[in-house]
Design a protein around this nucleic acid. Structure first.
Length: 553
RNA sequence: GCGCCCGUAGCUCAGCCUGGAUAGAGCAACGGACUUCUAAUCCGUAGGUCGCAGGUUCGAAUCCUGCCGGGCGCGCCA
């Protein structure tokens, strides 16, 4: 166990505060020197060689100040620097590169190792309620690999948002009503009849997959007395739950469409749309006049001519429920690529009903499985689909999640099965995990040599003088910023790339410098503190991704 | 036809939202490094008309327009 300790020499440094300090300082200098009011852009330089933060403000001031960016940069820098900043250096044609002081970075490292579970978590919390809905696969059969991708991406976004201080609820919308469920029930009944030796046909548009036959056998042999249609629905749903859980994806709420349909909300929403004169009758059906609200959205049916609610209507009401009954400030709904037409419809409807700009529908692109360099062709009809369960059993949870995450979600993903299966150096997920395992191993070695935790947590980090050590510290410093960026941009792929870079810096450091050296106790302790902070960062980052951090490999 | 996404090194991709420093990784190729804490590692070499053409700008892989190529979607299905 780690003992909480009092850090006397240094105070906790807040990365966002530091960035903010630089912004304010620059704005002040610009006002003072050139009498202009600007909000300077302070961002990460492309390389750590250029410092910790950089600004291109001099370029922006060039016209107003009628001077070259380089001269402006020189003038700006000629003043007392803000807190925690040790240098501001003019570089290139007019950049200013800032470096965080070593004292401040040392304080950060010590605070990480004394409170590892808090590292990366934003405080204070933001007072915003966010819902993330994802997967929401129909409970009509085994989940496919797009659901697996959605699970990895959705859960990571939710984890990142939570870490960044938002109040997050994850939700799976259970489509347990409607036409498809009826067809599922009928298909299942037909399979049962077939097993009983009677002739029964699976209905048109029904589910022909072998799995229903297997379930039918299970149903009959279990002697269940429950209505088969209810039984199969529960069966498939519970299978989905358990696969998702195995995939490190858990939902706070499983929201039943069937229950929702009887809540009265659909009727209410429909009548509000009518009152707002957003609907009209055509061909015996009732339509939503979406094109009147947004130019590029076509009208669509709310109530079918047979009097049944269309899917679109129920989904609109469902999303209204999220805002009105449950008070979410922001809702992210992740949908598959075949739903992109639905996105504009939903967002238009939210606008019509008084909730503009609160719903963001994210479209997750498709997945192609690649084996032996070729695309695996999948066909539902031929029963040749690869299920989420098979994928997990094949490549493992960690590798699968890594490959799903290490790609922008709006891009198509070619999932290389051979590479994901590969447990060698070609597989980047092991590269990151290996860095962690190496560190655990070194720390264990050190403890066996008599170093203890109390010493490490009071290390004198000024003993760290090599560039490899400083690159590591400064990369760690960027971790909370990386999480914040992920949450703000909803781009989970940022985290795996960051962790890979961090692991690379560690491996480089490891090769050049020995950590445990009994003749250099102080230095060893400082390095142990450093690598412990690296390990904590990797572990916390992997946890957000739902990927494990094994102590040994 | 309309809409969404993609096009950056031989391959797989970052970088684009928010324009600026020599366009970055990994894999594959070639050459090196283990008596010392895990070689699932490290170092080096080589590899690019950023799909094409215009435009905006002091400055474009990044923003705008038009093309070309690839994927997907356009139901009173959900």
């Amino acid at each position: 166990m780690r003992k909480p300790i009092e850090i006397k020499k240094y105070s906790m440094m807040n990365i966002f505060k530091t960035n903010r300090t630089i912004v304010d300082w620059l704005a002040g200098r610009a006002a003072e020197l050139y009498d202009v009011d600007v909000v300077p852009d302070v961002f990460e330089p492309e390389s750590l060689d250029f410092g910790d933060w950089t600004t291109n403000l001099p370029f922006q001031l060039a016209r107003v100040a009628r001077k070259s960016p380089a001269d402006i940069a020189t003038e700006i820098v000629d003043a007392e620097l803000p807190k925690n900043i040790s240098s501001a250096e003019v570089a290139g044609a007019g950049y200013i590169n800032f470096r965080i002081s070593k004292d401040a970075l040392a304080g950060m490292v010590l605070s990480i190792i004394s409170e590892p579970d808090r590292w990366g978590f934003s405080s204070p919390e933001k007072n915003v309620k966010i819902q993330v809905e994802f997967v929401s696969a129909n409970p009509t059969g085994p989940m496919n690999i797009v659901s697996a991708r959605a699970a990895a991406v959705g859960s990571t976004i939710a984890n990142a948002l939570r870490t960044a201080g938002y109040d997050v609820s994850t939700e799976f919308y259970l489509n347990d009503a409607g036409n498809q469920i009826r067809l599922l029930g009928e298909s299942f009944l037909a399979r049962i009849e077939q097993l009983r030796g009677k002739s029964a046909e699976i209905p048109e548009g029904g589910y022909f997959g072998e799995y229903l036959l297997d379930y039918a056998r299970e149903y009959l042999s279990s002697g269940a007395s429950e209505n088969p249609q209810e039984w199969i629905l529960k069966k498939i749903t519970s299978e989905q739950k358990s696969v998702l859980k195995k995939f490190n994806t858990e939902f706070d709420v499983w929201f039943s469409e069937r229950e929702f349909r009887s809540s009265g909300k659909v009727e209410e929403v429909l009548s509000r749309l009518r009152d707002g004169e957003h609907t009209y009758i055509k061909d015996g059906a009732e339509w939503f006049a979406a094109s009147k609200i947004a130019d590029d959205v076509e009208d669509f049916v709310l109530v079918k001519s047979d009097g049944e609610w269309a899917y679109g209507l129920v989904d609109i009401a469902y999303h209204i429920n999220k805002f009105e009954e449950r008070g979410f400030d922001i809702v992210y709904t992740i949908l598959g690529p075949d739903h992109h037409g639905h996105r504009a419809r939903l967002e238009t409807a939210m606008k019509a009903l008084g909730h503009p700009d609160k719903l963001k529908v994210l479209i997750l692109q498709q997945v192609n499985l690649i084996e032996n360099g070729e695309k695996i062709k999948m066909s539902k009809r031929a029963g040749k689909i690869i299920t989420m369960t098979e994928l997990i059993d094949d490549v493992g949870v960690d590798a699968a999640r890594y490959f799903f995450l290490a790609r922008k979600m709006e891009a198509h993903l070619d999932f290389d099965l051979d590479l994901a299966r590969n447990t060698s150096d070609e597989n980047p997920v092991y590269y990151i995990q290996y860095a962690y395992a190496r560190i655990r191993s070194i720390i264990e070695f050190a403890q066996n040599k008599g170093f203890d935790v109390d010493e490490i947590v009071q290390a004198d980090l000024s003993l760290l003088q090599h560039p490899e050590e400083h690159f590591l510290i400064r990369k760690i410093y960027k971790y909370p910023y990386t999480i914040e960026k992920t949450a703000r941009n909803l781009q989970p792929h940022i985290i795996p790339f960051y962790l890979y870079d961090l692991a690379k810096l560690f491996h480089d450091f490891y090769t050049k410098h020995r950590v445990v050296d009994e003749n250099e106790k102080g230095l060893s302790v400082a390095r142990l503190a450093l690598i412990d902070a690296v390990a904590i960062t990797i572990k916390n980052g992997l946890k957000i991704c739902g990927i494990s951090a094994p102590d040994k490999m």
